[in-house]
């Protein structure tokens, strides 16, 4: 059994907030759990009481009721405290939890909104209730990296409930603004031919502009490999950056069953590859 998310968050917040702030939070949590608190009035004070700094827990995760693991690497102390408040309110009124999160998003400033968004995957009904989807859609449209990131990255809720068109746009926007697409849940499960093709177009655009291409694009492009991808990936197998060679090896491995002609090139490169991670990726690719 993975530990209770609220327990994990409580420990992380306790390690980083001031004692007065923690006393304040305990009172607010008790009120929320008893249905006595108007969270719209409590949410604005959270950052002032507990701080705005990072949780500084790069390896920490929590597990949702559906068993999805969710990274806390990008969370701030106030995010974690606001999620705890929503979890407490959900104990009182579980059926209203996601609707309440949406309401708090609507009334919140950027920090409050980020907190509401980060809670979604952990609230009761996250697997079936799309009541908070309008908040996610709103955050996808804003030009505030902070909100977009909280809506889409490390969020099984977003990847479960976003319609396919919106979800594809979210993946592309994440890549476009420099967020790692590997932080998007169900990335490969929901990828379709259109996304593979859009991702390759985006990579070409970046290349033409002489701008960096995120290596994480390659396996996604290879999911429904558009014409020409194999040759491009063989080129990236010679790239000076290890991450590109590794991602290209992984992507080529996905393409091999459909394009066995690629195999000798992978064998050839494997004999010359200096980096052990890439060598391992090639070995796995050739074994597929």
């Amino acid at each position: 059994m993975p530990p209770d998310p609220d327990r994990v968050l409580a420990d992380l917040v306790a390690a980083r907030a001031r004692p007065e702030g923690l006393t304040w939070l305990d009172g607010a949590l008790a009120d929320a759990a008893a249905g006595r608190a108007d969270l719209a009035a409590v949410f604005p004070a959270v950052s002032r009481q507990l701080g705005r700094g990072g949780l500084d827990a790069p390896g920490a995760t929590v597990t949702t009721a559906a068993g999805e693991e969710l990274s806390l690497a990008a969370w701030r102390v106030d995010d974690a405290a606001r999620v705890r408040l929503l979890l407490a309110a959900a104990r009182h009124a579980p059926d209203r939890a996601l609707a309440l999160a949406r309401e708090l998003y609507d009334k919140g400033d950027a920090r409050e909104r980020a907190g509401a968004l980060r809670a979604l995957s952990l609230l009761p009904g996250a697997a079936r209730d799309d009541a908070a989807l309008p908040a996610v859609l709103d955050a996808l449209r804003v030009t505030q990296g902070e909100l977009f990131e909280a809506a889409v990255c490390d969020s099984p809720y977003a990847s479960r409930h976003l319609p396919q068109l919106e979800w594809r746009k979210a993946v592309l926007k994440a890549a476009f603004i420099g967020l790692s697409i590997t932080r998007i849940a169900r990335l490969h499960d929901r990828c379709d031919a259109e996304l593979s093709s859009s991702v390759l177009d985006f990579a070409r655009e970046r290349e033409a502009a002489g701008r960096p291409v995120p290596p994480a694009l390659w396996p996604l492009a290879a999911r429904y490999a558009p014409p020409g991808l194999g040759a491009k990936l063989l080129g990236y197998l010679e790239h000076p950056a290890v991450e590109h060679r590794r991602a290209a090896a992984e992507a080529l491995g996905m393409m091999l069953p459909g394009e066995p002609r690629l195999r000798p090139f992978l064998v050839d490169h494997g004999a010359r590859e200096p980096d052990e991670h890439v060598v391992r990726a090639l070995r796995e690719a050739l074994a597929s």
Binding site: L55, A74, W75, R76, G145, E149
Partner: peptide
């Protein structure tokens, strides 16, 4: 000031820019 949520993930591309 706070700019985005990527700062604490240890692999910030924005920071690199």
């Amino acid at each position: 000031p706070v700019l985005d949520g990527e700062l604490f993930s240890g692999n910030s591309i924005l920071r690199g820019q």
